[in-house]
Amino acid sequence: MTIDWWTLGLQTVNVLILLWILARFLFRPVAKIIAERQAAAHAALDEAEAAKHAAEAARAEAEAARQAVLRERAEKIAEVRKDAEAEKQRLMAEVQAELDKARGQAKDELARQGRAQQEALSEQAGVLAGDIADRLLARLPKEARVAGFIDGLVEAVAQLPESTRAGIGLHGPVPLRAAQMPTEAEIAQLRAGLDTTLGRAVEIEVTEAPELIAGLELDTATAIVRNHFRADLDRITAEVRKHD
């Protein structure tokens, strides 16, 4: 067995040339494109990672904004509730004041109506008493409407002060109102009583006044002496009103 050294040398050179050819046209381009793909994949991964981070940041930001909106909403609700509560209190105070005012007015009105009713009742009582007295007196003789009151009138004049009594009948006849026109005897009795009480003779001018119901009324410049049912009823009514 022999070795062809030329062939050995040529094959060595051939393999070296093949090394260069394959390095130039096969391994380097393929390795380069693999590296480029890996770089692209890494870049895509990095980009995806960056996008993920950006998305997470955006989500966190949105969450923060949502929390801020919720906080603001809660604050506004609390503020509105506070305002509503204040408004409610104010309205309630206003309503209470108006109620108090209306209640006071109603109370005043009721009192006023009560008083008016009382007055009306008193008035009616007076009228009723007058009617009762009138009907009762109607059963008595007509002379009783005057004769029974002569002594009382004289006594009332007697109780007047001296100076007042002195002025009665000085300047003319004494005006005298009677529930009905007195008889001559009654006038004489009345004049006699007044003469005795005043210590001098006086003239009497009698006029009829049915509103007195029964009795007499002496009306002079210095004094008015009432001795009749109307005056009594008025006094009783006044007393009743005073006691109410």
Partner: peptide, 10 residues
Amino acid sequence: IETDAALALI
């Protein structure tokens, strides 16, 4: 063997 020797030499 020359080819194999060339490869082995390399």
